[in-house]
Amino acid sequence: MAIEIISLITSFVLMLIGLYGLLSDKNIIKIIVGFSLFDTGTHILIVTIGYLKGKTAPILDNAVGLTDVSQKIVDPIPQALVLTAIVIGLAVTALMLAYALKMYQAKKSLNIGDYKTLKW
């Protein structure tokens, strides 16, 4: 068992837990919590894919040096992508919470079953 296997399993379990919470709960706030758990799971998955065993962080300080860099560092591209994804995740969460607040102001209920106008 290595680090990447364990964190891969964790990311999949986290995504499944988030998906279950997203689908099964009736409370809007709980749905948003499930969404953010799913988000975290995806981020862990992408970072884990870029991890290489025994390599160090992609920062070329004195410990890494400037020669044979590609033999010493982990993949920097997934990290750059996750950096972007986390900020956008916060933006999406804030937007969903603003919608939830407005929905609560309209009907005084957080139960998703009370909002029949969206059904057909």
């Binding site: 680090i3 990447e4 964190s7 706030i29 948003i32 919590v33 953010s36 975290t40 981020h43 970072v47 884990t48 870029g50 991890y51 390599k55 160090t56 962080a57 992609p58 920062i59 982990v74 990290q79 996750v82 950096l83 986390i86 900020v87 995740g89 916060l90 969460t93 804030a94 919470l97």
Partner: peptide, 24 residues
């Protein structure tokens, strides 16, 4: 941090557990 991604760790600590919890 243990997966050798300190940049992502800083972002997640500041944004994921700080700001988003405050907004909730």
């Amino acid at each position: 941090l243990l997966l050798a991604a300190p940049d992502v760790a800083m972002t997640e600590a500041a944004i994921g557990s700080g700001l988003s919890t405050i907004i909730f």
